[in-house]
Amino acid sequence: MKLTAEPPMDESSGAVKARRLGPGFWLPMGWIFLIVGVALLAPVLPLKDPTDYFIRPGERPPYPPSADHWFGTDQDARDMFSRIISGARVSLAVGFMTVTMSFIVGGTLGMVAGLVRGWFDRLASFLFLVVLSFPGIVLVILIIALIDRSVLTISVVLAIGGIAPVGRLARAATLSFAEREFVIAARTLGARNSRILFRELLPNVVIPMGALVLLGVAAAILAEGGLAFLGLSIEKGETWGKLIRNGSGSRVLRDSPWVAFGPITVMFLTLASINYIGDYLRDFFNVRETGLGQ
């Protein structure tokens, strides 16, 4: 959300800002904990099998929500509630893997570029520029079409698109710290670049980057959903995107909207929570320069 505005100064942020995370932070955080917890614990929770067919004799599926099937069933009489949870496992995995990879690679490139400057900086900056001036969706579709559609491939491909914005932020943050007194002091004491990078700069750069991790997760989950609509999402298993697509066919949507609206609601709540927390943390830490999650 690159262009998310900061709240104007004449409003809630006020003159003295309490350095405490309020309920506006913990409510969405609670949802994230809930969804991640349920996704992690899905194998041990007493859930219906997401691939089982609960056909009732004499009735045509999809069945509407009931005490038995909280979110109803899909066209094949499979339980939507457990399918959404099973989809959460894959969607969240893609989100977290993508962010981990793009932050490790982009963060390292950006920080080294900001610290050593010179030709490496020019090269890295050029690389970021090239990646940013290329339409991400085309690259993603192309690579996925040519290789395969496993969780890993899709995460790697999405992560490539994330390297540039993450790297730019890491570089900018490093630059702003690299000339500060504590870094000069460390250098004067004879610290090597690697020590300065990890012990002096990293703890400072991690804070503004941390607020972006969540937005990166949201962007990756969103991208997976888009791919699902193109029919190019992960082949095996369920994802939120695939579930929504499955419920969006004309007839299903008209006659049994719950098939699409269950996953839409869960996906929206998750993305909204992530965005809200991201905005909140960004205000909290006052991170200005971002380019993530366009």
Partner: peptide, 18 residues
């Protein structure tokens, strides 16, 4: 505005279609 920024366009499409 927050709702519209957070909802993915494909999900919004399905909601509007319905």
């Amino acid at each position: 505005a927050f709702f519209l920024v957070s909802i993915p366009n494909f999900a919004l499409g399905v909601v509007l279609l319905y």
